[in-house]
């Protein structure tokens, strides 16, 4: 929660975009395009009479210029190809543009994932925990048997709390991680989806645990007996599955 500020993340694409613009401006500055003065001169149209007079002379000048330039070797090999600096500017801008789009897209995807994760309690379905491995499920009856034998020790309150905690530890595994934010009811739902457990027994055992853990009224041997019966029920359901 709140370990980093989102403001710095917001600024990074802006900084990148500014960098791209500066680079484009620098490249554009090196591009030796037609001068404004030349353009102006080119656009100024001489009077028609002068045009007529100059036409014959201009044709001769053009021929002589062409012959001069051919002699000097200044004529580009491929005159229809844009200048080299323009050729560099376009792909550079394209590369930066694509990079910016990719970064923006990645940020959007990451943000959506974060939001989905944060609103998961309401909108995201709980991921299927899957089934435990054969070893894990086959070890559970033995573990629960130990818990059932130990429930006779100590006060009913302590015995029931200890039984529940050991049950929590028994079901834990690679496919069933410990979730500290989970309440007993949520753990029951997850355990029922993951293991072949008797629904009524585990729900009743969770209720007895809540009573033992959070109440202050006395708990009796009847509560202990009920918890023991719940553990037997869980063992029976696992045994039936094993057969």
């Amino acid at each position: 929660m709140g370990t980093h500020s989102p403001r710095s993340l917001h600024l990074s694409p802006i900084a990148l975009g500014s960098l791209v613009l500066v680079l484009c401006a620098l490249v554009a500055a090196t591009f030796d395009g037609p001068r404004w003065t030349d353009l102006d001169r080119g656009t100024e149209r001489p009077p028609v009479a002068e045009q007529e007079r100059d036409r014959s002379g201009a044709a001769e000048e053009t021929r002589s210029e062409q012959s001069e330039s051919t002699e000097d070797g200044d004529e580009p090999w491929l005159p229809w190809v844009p200048p080299l600096d323009l050729l560099l500017l376009v792909p550079t801008a394209l590369v930066f543009g694509v990079a910016l789009l990719v970064v923006a897209r990645l940020r959007l995807v990451r943000r959506r994932r974060q939001l989905t994760g944060r609103m998961g309690v309401r909108s995201s379905p709980v991921p299927d925990p899957g089934r435990p491995s054969e070893d894990e499920e086959s070890g559970l009856p033995e573990f629960l048997g130990e818990v059932a034998r130990a429930i006779g020790r100590g006060t009913p309150r302590n015995a029931i709390v200890a039984a529940w905690v050991r049950l929590e530890q028994a079901v834990e595994g690679d496919h069933f991680p410990h979730r500290p934010e989970e309440t007993p009811s949520e753990l029951v739902e997850r355990a029922l989806a993951s293991y072949h457990l008797d629904d009524a027994s585990i729900r009743r055992l969770a209720a007895l645990y809540r009573e033992a853990r959070f109440s202050r009224h006395p708990l009796t041997e009847q509560h202990r007996a009920e918890a023991a019966a719940c553990l037997e029920g869980l063992l029976a359901s696992l045994g039936a599955r094993a057969r």
Partner: peptide, 16 residues
């Protein structure tokens, strides 16, 4: 909803 999914709920693990 986010903090409900992050703040550890009371447990009895430290008591057993």
């Amino acid at each position: 909803e986010t903090v409900l999914g992050q703040v550890p709920a009371p447990t009895a693990r430290d008591r057993v």
